[in-house]
Design a protein around this nucleic acid. Structure first.
Lengths: 190, 190
DNA sequence: CAAACAAGTCAACATGACTGACGTAAATCA
DNA sequence: TGATTTACGTCAGTCATGTTGACTTGTTTG
């Protein structure tokens, strides 16, 4: 038996109803994240379909577009998938002329990845779709939403990956160090 | 009991940028959303593996747990998948005693879904994992992050689904009406 | 030179999505 | 009442994307 307060009640006792209301807030966040991501993914999917590509292709194309010269190993860390999974979509992107490879100058074992002009065009097209939705959402969420949301999303990342992501996205320093956090024990597994 | 300060206090600085910088901000949001969701999904996955379940099972279990008496048709709208996709995971959840069905009283064609105590236990276990991460992230993101993030995530949802989600999550009215939205429907058909 | 490393590849498999077609029982409409 | 619609279930096949394991080819490094 779970009781749910009406919005009026919720607003009234916002900071007093400790565990119960707090729990509802957290669950709302979780569910909203699910719905938001569901629709965030949706726009590009329709376009990708026309190219015979899927989300996996999109992700590769995006990060190569944003980070020219990315190594395959980097991509594996970013996407957290196996190289066999990556290989399939990467091969398609290369075969169809959206991505190219060059050997690294210093280390010739490495295959550095770059988008072609064609790849850049598609990547930008997809990015613009998503950015339009994000922009509208930020506007609707009001001032401060950008900063707060970025801090929240960044803090949702597994702690051991944050530094890598921070560097990858070239984020401002403020994002990491908003509040000192006491004890954090996450992602010790494996 | 995070304080819900007015979002203006949180950070009014970051939101007034120029076009080029603005674009970078939006891209950062998009990428952060990807990384956040990637890791948000990760915690439950490890537990689900032990039960022989996947994400699809988790989603069904979660929404049935949160909304006892949910109809199959509702679930399809929530998850935006086909009934054939749903059928497989739902059947497993029922066969293994995590979910039960009852015929609707008014309309006996309907199969109303409920979690069993066993199902409730697993659902809560998974929810707690995710809520712990969200709680830590909200703390780290500072005051105002909860409200701002919820508004942002809500606004990311496809407009035609917002009303439905709003009703489903029993969200406070303020979430929808931060900024005057022009046309809003009153249809409450769940 | 041997070992470690970056990357590619082959094969088999699991999950979760899809389409299309069909069945069944209950509600609703003409 | 009889026909149609609705809610749900199911069979069968396909596709996209993930997995593990094993092996190869270059290249760098100890």
């Amino acid at each position: 038996m779970r009781q749910r307060n009406s919005p009026q009640q919720a607003a009234a006792v916002m900071d007093q109803n400790l565990a119960g209301e707090d729990r509802e807030q957290l669950i709302a966040c979780a569910e909203l994240l699910f719905f938001a991501y569901r629709d965030f993914i949706n726009d590009p999917d329709k376009v990708l379909e026309q190219y015979g590509f899927g989300r996996a292709h999109h992700r590769v194309l995006h990060f190569v577009n944003r980070n020219p010269g990315l190594r395959v190993a980097d991509l594996l860390h970013i996407l957290k998938i196996t190289k066999q999974s990556l290989a399939r979509v990467l091969k398609q992107l290369i075969d169809e002329g959206f991505v190219t490879q060059r050997s690294g100058r210093e280390d010739r074992r490495q295959r550095l990845l770059y988008v072609t002009p064609k790849g850049n065009k598609l990547a930008d097209k997809l990015a613009n779709l998503q950015m339009r939705r994000i922009e509208a959402a930020l506007n609707q969420a009001g001032p401060g939403a950008n900063a707060a949301t970025q801090r929240f999303l960044f803090a949702m990342i597994a702690e051991k990956d944050r530094e890598r992501v921070h560097a990858l996205l070239r984020l401002p320093e403020a994002l990491v160090a908003f509040e000192p956090i006491e004890h954090q024990q996450q992602d010790r597994t494996t």
